[in-house]
Structure formats: C-alpha cells, structure tokens
Design a protein around this nucleic acid. Structure first.
Lengths: 173, 173, 173, 173
DNA sequence: CATGAATGAGTGTTCATTCAT
DNA sequence: TATGAATGAACACTCATTCAT
C-alpha cells in the first residue's frame, strides 16, 4: 500500500460518504487525493474496485468491534458492551459508516452471514435473561442499533448520554 | 395532473427507489413511462424537479399518517398507534419510503420541523406516563422507528408480529 | 435517414478509410460531419454500430455489382463483365472499398456465403469453357481480382487499360 | 539483440498481426513478452519504433526471398521461382506478412523502390518471352501475387497446388 | 539493464437539457 | 401538449510515455 494509494482511499471515502458514490466523479477523487486520475484505475481497476477497497476496510473495522462484544462474559455484559460500542462511535469514523449505511440503500450489499455469530450470541443472552421470544428480541436490538446509528450519523443529538441511559433502563442494565 | 404526468411520477418513483436517483437516467424514466424524454422537462423543469414532486407526495402521505397518531386520545394510545402504523406499512408503499430513506444519506433533506408536532405530542405523552427523561425517550422512539422501518424496507423479517409484541412490552402497551 | 445521419456516415467513411477505423476517434468524425459527438451514439449506438452501417452500404453496393455479372448470358460474357466491372471502379467509390479491404485484415469479417453464388456461376462458366480444374480456376480469379483491386486502391497504375488487355488475353476474351 | 529484446519483438509481432497495430496497447505487448512496460521504450524509443523494428525484419526477409528469384538463369525460371516462392510461404511466417499487408492499408508505407529491381528483371523476362506489353504484364504479375498472398494469409484454400498449376498454365511454365 | 509507479492527454460513451416541429 | 433530434459537458476508463529507483 503506497502513500498515494492511501490518499486515494482517504479522499474517496470522504467524497463518497458526503456526496454519494454514484454522484462522485473519479476526477474529483483524483483531485482531492492530489493524484492523477489514471492512477485510480491502475491501483483499483475501476471505480467499483475503489469502492470495494474502502468497504473492505469497513468490514474489518466492524469485525474488530464485534469481537469485543461477543467475548463478553455475561448476558448483561453483552448488551452493555453492544450499546456502549454503539454510543462511542468516534467522529473520525463517521465517514466510513455513513458510506456503509448509504450503500445499503443502493446495492443489495446486505450480508446476513456477517452478523450471524453476533445474532447467535445475542439470542443466547436473551434466553438466559428469561425473555419470552429471544429471536424477536435479537431482531429488535439490531433494528434499534440501526436506528440509533443512523441518527448519530445524520443529525447527532446533544443528549446522547441520556438516550443511552433510557435505552439501558429498557434492558435493565 | 394529467395521465402522462402520473405515469412519469410512477415510473420515476419505481426506478429511483430501486436503482438510485443519481444512477437513473431520465431517458429510462421516459421509456418506462411510455413518454418522450422532453415531456419530463416540460412538466417538472429538470430532474430534481421530478424528484421533488415525488417527495412532495411522500410528504403528504407522511402527514396523513401522523395525523392519526397525534389525534389519539390517551398517551398509551399514541404509542400504540405509532407502532401499529409503523408495522402496517404496505408493500405497495415500500418504493416511496425506500426512496425517502435512501435520499436521507445523499442530501441534507432532513427537515426537523416536519416532525416537531409529533415530537411535542410524544414528549408530552411520556411525561404523563411518568418517564424520567421524556425528551430522551422521544428521541429514542424516533430512532427505533427509523431502525424498524429500515429493516422492513431492506430485508423484511418474517416474525414482524413477534417483534411488535416485544416492542410493546418494552413500553408496557 | 436524416441529413445529419448521412453526413456522419460520409465523414466516417472518409476518415475510417484514410486513417483506419481504430485510429479515428469519434470526436474527429463528429467534427468532420459538423455534428455533436453525442449524435453519433444516438443514431448508431456505438462506434462499431457506425462502422456496421457503413459496411452495410458497401455490402449492398457489392451485391448490385455482382448481379450484373451473374446475369451474363454466356461464359465468356461473365468473365468479361467481371473484369470490366473491376476495372471501372470509380474514384468516388474508392473510400468505401478501401475501408472494406482494410478491415479484412483487422476482423474476421470474411463472409464466404456472400460470394457463393458468384463462385458457382464462375465455376460453371469455366467448366463450359473446357478448363481442366474449374474450382481452382475460380479461386484464382477471385485472388487476381483481389490483387487488382488492391493495387487500384492503394497506388493506381497509369496503364490500367493495358493491364486489362493483358488479363483478357490470358482468358482468351 | 538481447533475449528480452527478442521476446518483445516476437510478442509485438504476434499481437500486432492478430489484433492490429493501433488497437494493441504496449502494456499487452509487455505482458505477453514477460517484460516491464518501460523496457519497450528504452529499447525502441516509442511504439512506432517497435513497429519499425519489426518491419525491418520483414524487409530483410523479403529481400532474401527476392534475391533467389532475381538470380534465376532463364526468363521462365524467373517466373517459376517467383510463383513457387509465393506458394511456399510457411505457416510460421504468416504473422509477419499479415502485419505487413495490414499496414499497407493504414499507412503510406508502400515503397516503390523496394521492388524496382524485381520489376526490371520481370519486365526483361517478359520481353524475352515475346509478350506484347512487358510493363503491363509485370504490373499484372505483381497484382496477382498480391491477391494470392492475401488469400493465403486470410483464408487459405485447400487446393493450393491446383491453383499453382492453373497459374503456371497461364504463363506456360 | 530493468522495473513499475505515475502521468495527462485522449477515447468511447452517457445524460440532462434544449428546441424546432 | 407532446415529440424526438440535437447538443455539449461530463464521465469512466485507456494508454503511450516518463522517471525515480
């Protein structure tokens, strides 16, 4: 990974996240990266290749985050870590997640299997906690996390900690 | 609204929702609508005008839905109606909402004011129900609804009713 | 076939014939035709479509020429007409044939069937004239015509009529 | 001539002959030769330099072939050798001649002088054989050879020997 | 001698938009 | 109102060529 390659990735991430993948011309990416347009294609093949390289980075970041959650020792700890992970997304990571979330609506990029193990762990946790329908609970948690993340990325509220508190109360954490 | 105008809107909605606004050429819209390309511009000015016309329809649909909720007689009824409205989105409305949700990530189209009255009503309801932090609760409900809607639109689960039940339990409905 | 369409075909024929298909940019064709570049693609789909449209014209011209030959009443008349047709190619047709001949080397565009009936007629004529191996004779005539045409197109000699005479003597015409 | 230089020439010849000079990128040549792209330019200056190096090889091969013809002891022997040379082009030489022939249509590369001595010898031979118009005969022979070569290179017939026989009969060989 | 990252001018093609009819 | 030919500015992508190593 050369220096220029990285600067292409960085510029592309920023532009794709803010302006959308389809409406960001490769020429803009090149200019923002301080690089000739041809270089993008030499390194990434085509525009989609560039996108995939970015998404690959996101995928790895996601896996790392999830590992921490899955490794939690107790059911309550799993939920706690999950929510806290969610509420501690850094500003610096926003662009990457924005891109990932935006793409969900443009491609059939949803990969069920990626979340399979987390779902299993969550479902198991809810069962131990005595919830009536662990499967439905798991689905619901995923949806809630999706909604929370969306909100944080698009128009972050000021009372994040209050919301976290309200959420924790719901799950008796 | 002539017949052709409607068929343009319909075709555009379908294509924008499934293929994305930026990557859907007006020529495809015209062909799908069985109409000359020029007509789109005569009626809607430009491509963005066409988009706005669609969004205007969505906005009105949204307002109608919210009216039912706001008019509810009791706090619990407000929440109940809100959730049930959410879980009863018809297949036929999917395209419209898909488009609206996808656009959130591409434009700064979030209009706070549109939801102001609903927020007020909700906040008031939570207060009456004795919730500690009604403002945070309101925000959280909005996020949850967002997450649920996203899931339903992108990869609808089979146990919708179970999820609704789990959600209602959380709010003691 | 609109006026602009024709001027595109004309300009493309000229440029493709003189500079080669692959090394003639569509932008040059457009400029030479006094037309926007986009129009080429609207009418012919892509660059190859433009080429095919030209070749289709050539194909029809060729068929007409061959019809005259095939309809000849006697074996000797067939050969006579064939050679005279060959030697009477007009300057104005040069570009078209140049393109056709040049493309033979760039594509597998040789269509055996196109010449099948002419070959049959020729072979039959040679048989009636008592030639030993009519099939080989036919092949040879085709090759000779190819060589003559090539010469006329690339560096036309001044003694065309003398050459025709020499050729006729060989076939006792 | 280093080993790499030769492999570049070989690869270029093959690709230029089969895909055309203009539509063969130097990158492909480099890859086919198992060599870095830069090396082509170090050795041959630019793409055209590479082409010229190939054509130079062809030119020398041609000269050798013609020498045998020119040295023939009698007029009839000249024609005989000429035709036999033509009909004995090896499969392995096809690529080179294909390239040379294809280029005739793309450049003004016809070099009259290259064939001057052969033309002189031929013309002289026809005179001795009592032909009416030796100059025209010479031209005609050149054209015929061109046509025969073209056929052999593009769609070789199966009855080559029969055709040679028919040709020899015409010149009473 | 040899590599391969890097460039920038071009190339075929797309597409929103205009306009004469 | 409606058409569809026409435009021209982008766009993704290619490629001959250069140059630091």
């Amino acid at each position: 990974m050369t220096e220029k390659q990285e600067s292409i990735l960085k510029a592309a991430l920023m532009l794709f996240a803010t302006q959308g993948y389809a409406s960001t011309p490769t020429s803009k990416v090149a200019k923002a990266a301080g690089v000739s347009e041809g270089l993008i294609f030499r390194h990434f093949g085509n525009k989609e290749g560039l996108l995939n390289a970015i998404l690959e980075m996101a995928s790895q970041a996601m896996e790392q985050k999830m590992a921490t959650v899955v490794m939690a020792p107790s059911p309550k700890e799993i939920l706690t870590r999950l929510f806290e992970m969610l509420f501690s997304i850094q500003e610096s990571e926003h662009e990457m997640w924005k891109l990932v979330y935006a793409l969900k609506w443009q491609t059939d990029s949803y990969d069920e299997s990626k979340y399979a193990s987390l779902k299993l762990v969550l479902s198991n946790a809810f069962e131990k906690l005595g919830y009536e329908d662990p499967a439905a609970e798991t689905e619901l948690v995923f949806m809630i996390m999706d909604g929370v993340a969306t909100s944080f990325l698009l128009h972050p509220p000021e009372n994040k900690s209050d919301i976290l508190k309200a959420l924790k109360i719901k799950y008796e954490l």
